[in-house]
Amino acid sequence: MQGETPAPSEPSLPEGRFDGREAFEGIVRAALENASRQGWRELVLSDPDFADWPLGERASIQALQAWSASGRRFVLLAQRFDVIERAHTRLVPWRRMWDHIIECRAVRPEAGSPAVPSAIWTPDWFAHRHDPERSRGVCGFDPRARRELRETIDELWRAGRPAFPASTLGL
């Protein structure tokens, strides 16, 4: 009808190559915003330390909160989690609250094993930074690329150890 303003469009998931930190941060935000909307049962984030991810932003936590529900699984794979604890302080209380759906593992880099990829994996879509230093990579819906990324993550997951606990018990 004439005179009506179209409803704002939902954030869509990008596809293709990306280049630069701003582009990568936008991809992470779009993934988190789409997780709830598309009803993803599992969300896997992988990075050596998540230092340059926008995980501590209020909007990221709100998106994760909207996504959190019964039957969901959130996986974090890293070499180290100390950066998350220092730089993404809003994520830490959210992690405590949703401990029952979150699994975290740390992987020590070893000769002959693949490096921890900087990636997002979902049942339908993925993003993979092949060059984290320059934030260059590719994202999309390609089943083969998504499967290969998941196989790498699963291999590292098996070699990892539990990390980033929701709480620390002590004397």
Rank of each mutant, 00 (worst) to 15 (best):
L77N: 06
G20F: 05
F24A: 14
G160R: 14
A119H: 03
R147E: 14
E10Q: 12
P14Q: 13
I84D: 01
P114S: 08
G71I: 08
E57K: 09
P117K: 05
W53C: 02
S68C: 07
S68R: 11
R161V: 14
D49V: 07
W94R: 06
R134T: 14
E10S: 13
S118V: 12
G16C: 04
R144S: 10
R95Y: 01
A69H: 06
A78L: 05
D142W: 04
R86K: 10
C139M: 10
M1N: 04
V44G: 02
V116M: 07
P143T: 10
P132G: 04
I153W: 02
A115S: 12
A35I: 12
R146L: 14
H130L: 15
A7V: 12
H88P: 08
W53S: 03
R41Y: 00
G71D: 05
G26Q: 11
P11W: 04
E148M: 08
A35Y: 01
Q38H: 04
H100M: 10
P143E: 13
G160F: 05
M97H: 09
P93G: 11
R90W: 01
T122G: 11
F164E: 09
L171T: 15
P8Y: 01
R105E: 08
R41W: 00
T122H: 02
M1G: 13
D154V: 05
R29L: 13
P132S: 06
G16I: 07
G20V: 14
R134M: 10
E15K: 09
R29G: 06
S113D: 14
F81S: 07
D19A: 12
S135I: 05
I153R: 06
R95W: 03
E33T: 08
R86H: 02
P114R: 06
D99L: 06
T168N: 08
D82M: 00
D142G: 10
D142A: 13
A63R: 03
S36A: 15
R147K: 11
A63T: 05
E25F: 00
D82I: 02
V92D: 09
P109Y: 11
A66P: 01
L91P: 07
